[in-house]
Write a protein that binds this DNA or RNA. Structure first.
Length: 776
DNA sequence: TAATCGATCTTTTTT
DNA sequence: AGATCGATTA
């Protein structure tokens, strides 16, 4: 748990680390570091930029540095370490504590979590509602669609995206630079209206969690002073993913480098969040904006074998906009990376399952394996196959749980309880389950509320008799919930819920602990539990179970307003928070299971064995990415490949189901770019064939002996597995088309013309060759 | 106001 | 293929 007060630690804030005598353990901690790592740990004074390649011991450096600073006398509470993901924050905190127990008091959070923390304490100064609830993208969309009523969904989506980007770039509606995002006056107005509405409701979106703190720090010098005094050390991990607003926040908190000590760590080759505003420029320009910056490069890779590293580097090397690092492998070479051509995505799943099962039979752990894919949707095929074969797995961060309708509904009830001005939440649940409140009535209530308390408004607003009954019922649910929460309602408060907890309806409160009681009460009394429970009956879903999980998760929070806000915040900011919370399994402890994960989510992780799947044009890289976007995809490939310690597998399918129909795929450009000498190519490729004559380099060729000169063309084509006009991909020559199939002394031979214009003759039926058939 | 049936997309990636 | 959306109908 991070320190919870923002009071300055004046007496300690000033204590700058001074290199002096080392306590007993320290030689050990420092000895395991290489020269550059040690320099980075011991560095002090000027701003520091650590350019850390993949697997170069970045986290070790940061955590050791934190421990070192504490050891040197810095107050842990004066140190702030910011990351981008909760997972990274947790790991950093854990590892730092292993080195130095007092690191538990260091503020280690994500940027957004820090922003929320800051705003709860200082937002009131800027007229913000300290009881704000955080809107996710979906909530922001529904708010916007109300503002843009009548516009097609696509336009609303577009506007929502642009507003989000605008905030990433620290642009307000009145900023002239907003034109860089959308120059239309119409957009500026929409953005302004959205901001006004959000302010009136008193809630915040993700972008606000960064942007508002900057505005407060700029507008309220005394607050800025307090924070600069409080934090004398600020460290940022994964700095290549910082957006402009986050950079501004860093500047304000650190006093522009003139105040505390600033240390950022990043790798331009691993910048993969440009699409949401990350600016590699931040890392390139850091030395310019923080005067006197010292740069330390960590270029020794301790994670991967040389051939894995070479494969990864050969691809990312095709990018133009790079600082250019040369990562040196410190490990001995091991198993060559394998490039496998598969016939279909089903074979891909089977291939992965085969690999894993074979390895586990030889005594390996499931947990050594990770399956990587570009989009979350791809996890399904693997899940099905693994389930069938009994391979234990875990899908990381598919964030499905909080996107589920029933969970969003329950959260909306809580959000409305926390903030009765929350129009989005109100509209979502007021008539759920149906209480006879239609769209017209909802509008009436919102209008009557005039941006104020909608609970009050639902009591007072004019409505038809039927709608009146519905509104009263809804209001009662919320009022009861409030009474439970405040515990001050005398009679009503400590009383058991109207429907007693325990059995009925399948939903229960375990021991009636904490906030669970309130969540249970709301979900039950609103009728949501029964409503979704009925759905389960109909189509065998698990909605009630999901609601139960939510109720259980709430038990960790106290039954009061603060607990409610904390609960909602933790859910919005850390969607993985609930993983494993439900099954009662020992949470936290890593289980022995295979990891299914998107490329993006693997950042900062490592696995002994990694399978990169879906390496086809259109899947990875996605669609027609080009220019800077293609470079980002390439970096994503690099991130994925460098997660592997011992073994790396690359899969490319000849066909893939997309939108219902099966389509032929061409191999990813990344496979053309990859250094072929570092990978072993395999593939039970139907119709695959071997290069003939001069091109039959090495390898064991099982040439078909049969050769019947009398065969007609059709037989030959069947024998060869190729027809005239078919398209194919050759690892060395690229795309080509079959011109003819003829008999030869060595068996059926296929004449291929490549895009380059070059024509080559190949023999058919060969294993392990360099050609893939492209299926339409 | 709610339910039902076609038409129309859908898949980025995350805080 | 499946979900989602919107217009049409009860």
């Amino acid at each position: 748990m991070p320190a919870d007060s923002d009071l300055p630690n004046s007496e300690l804030a000033a204590s700058k680390p001074a290199v002096s005598k080392l306590p007993a353990l320290w030689p050990k901690y420092l000895d395991v570091l290489n020269e550059e790592q040690r320099q980075a740990v011991l560095h002090s004074g000027s701003p520091l930029l650590i350019l850390a390649g993949a697997g170069s011991g970045k986290t070790r450096v940061i955590t050791t540095k934190i421990a070192w600073l504490i050891e040197q006398g810095a107050d842990p509470r004066s140190i702030m370490a910011v990351t981008f993901t909760n997972k990274a924050a947790k790991e950093m905190s854990q590892r730092a504590r292993q080195l130095e127990g007092r690191a538990a008091d260091v503020m280690m959070r994500t940027f957004h979590s820090f922003g929320a923390w800051f705003l709860r304490r200082n937002g009131a100064l800027a007229g913000l509602n300290p009881g704000f609830v955080i809107y996710d993208d979906e909530d922001a969309m529904s708010l916007l669609s109300k503002i843009m009523e009548g516009s097609p969904k696509g336009e609303v989506k577009d506007a929502a995206y642009k507003i989000s980007r605008a905030k990433d770039y620290f642009l307000s509606p009145d900023d002239p630079a907003l034109a860089a995002i959308d120059s239309r006056e119409k957009f500026r107005k929409i953005y302004a209206a959205y901001e006004a509405k959000l302010a009136q409701i008193g809630n915040l979106d993700f972008g606000d969690l960064i942007k508002k703190p900057v505005e407060i720090l700029r507008g309220q010098p005394q607050v800025a002073e307090r924070f600069r005094a409080r934090f004398s050390v600020i460290m940022v991990d994964e700095y290549q993913d910082a957006n402009v607003a986050q950079f501004e926040l860093l500047k304000e908190l650190s006093g522009g480098g003139g105040g505390g000590y600033v240390c950022v760590v990043g790798d331009d080759d691993q910048s993969i969040y440009r699409f949401r505003g990350a600016e590699v420029k931040n890392i390139l320009d850091f030395p310019k904006l923080f005067a006197g910056t010292q740069v330390i490069r960590l270029e020794k890779n301790y994670r991967s074998t040389p051939s894995i590293l070479r494969a990864a580097s050969s691809v990312v090397g095709n990018n133009k906009g790079r600082l250019g690092k040369t990562l040196a492998a410190e490990r001995q070479d091991g198993k060559q990376p394998v490039l496998a051509f598969l016939a279909s995505q089903d074979e891909e799943a089977a291939f992965c399952a085969d690999l894993i099962q074979a390895a586990v039979e030889k005594g390996g752990d499931w947990a050594q394996w990770a399956i990587l894919y570009r989009t979350n949707a791809q996890s399904l095929g693997f899940e099905t196959e693994f389930l069938r074969r009994g391979i234990p797995y875990r899908v990381v961060g598919s964030l499905k749980f909080y996107q589920r309708e029933e969970v969003k509904d329950a959260l909306a009830l809580l959000a409305f309880l926390a903030n009765p001005r929350d129009e989005v939440a109100f509209r979502r649940v007021a008539n759920k389950p149906a209480r006879g409140i239609g769209a017209a009535t909802l509008d009436k209530v919102v209008a009557a509320g005039e941006g104020g308390d909608l609970l009050e408004a639902s009591r007072l607003a004019e409505a038809s008799k039927r709608a009146r009954g519905g509104l009263d019922a809804f209001a009662k649910v919320i009022e009861d919930g409030r009474r439970v929460l405040e515990g001050s309602g005398g009679v009503g408060a400590s009383l058991p819920p109207a429907s007693s907890p325990g059995e009925k309806g399948g939903l229960s409160v375990k021991g009636g602990e904490g906030l669970s009681l309130c969540v249970f009460r709301l979900v039950k009394d609103s009728g949501l539990a029964d409503y979704h429970g009925a759905q389960d009956e109909d189509d065998g879903t698990q909605r009630l179970n999901n609601l139960q999980e939510l109720v259980n998760a709430a038990s960790l929070y106290p039954l009061n307003r603060g607990g409610l806000l904390d609960f909602l915040e933790s859910i919005e900011l850390d969607r993985s928070a609930m993983e494993g919370a439900g099954e009662g399994a020992a949470s936290g402890v890593s289980e022995n299971v295979v990891t299914l994960i998107t490329f993006h989510n693997t950042k900062g992780l490592e696995f002994k064995r990694v399978v990169m799947t879906g390496l086809e044009q259109g899947t990875f890289p996605r669609e027609d990415k080009s220019g800077e976007e293609l470079e980002e995809e390439r970096r994503l490939f690099y991130v994925g490949a460098t997660r592997a310690m011992d073994e790396l597998y690359l899969c490319c399918c000849a066909t893939r189901r997309r939108f219902g129909s099966t389509q032929g795929c061409e191999p990813s450009v990344f496979l053309r770019e990859i250094d072929k000498s570092t990978v072993r190519i395999i593939g039970k490729r139907p119709g695959g064939f071997a290069p003939a004559g001069d091109f039959a380099q090495g390898g064991s060729f099982a040439l078909p002996a049969k050769n019947t000169p009398s065969q007609d063309a059709r037989d030959l084509e069947r024998l060869a597995g190729w027809r005239r006009g078919e398209r194919l991909f050759h690892d060395d020559y690229g795309y080509g088309e079959v011109m003819s199939v003829k008999a030869s002394e060595e068996g059926p031979a296929v004449q291929v013309r490549f895009e380059s214009g070059q024509e080559l003759r190949f023999l058919s039926e060969h294993q392990g060759s360099a050609i893939t058939k492209i299926r339409e």
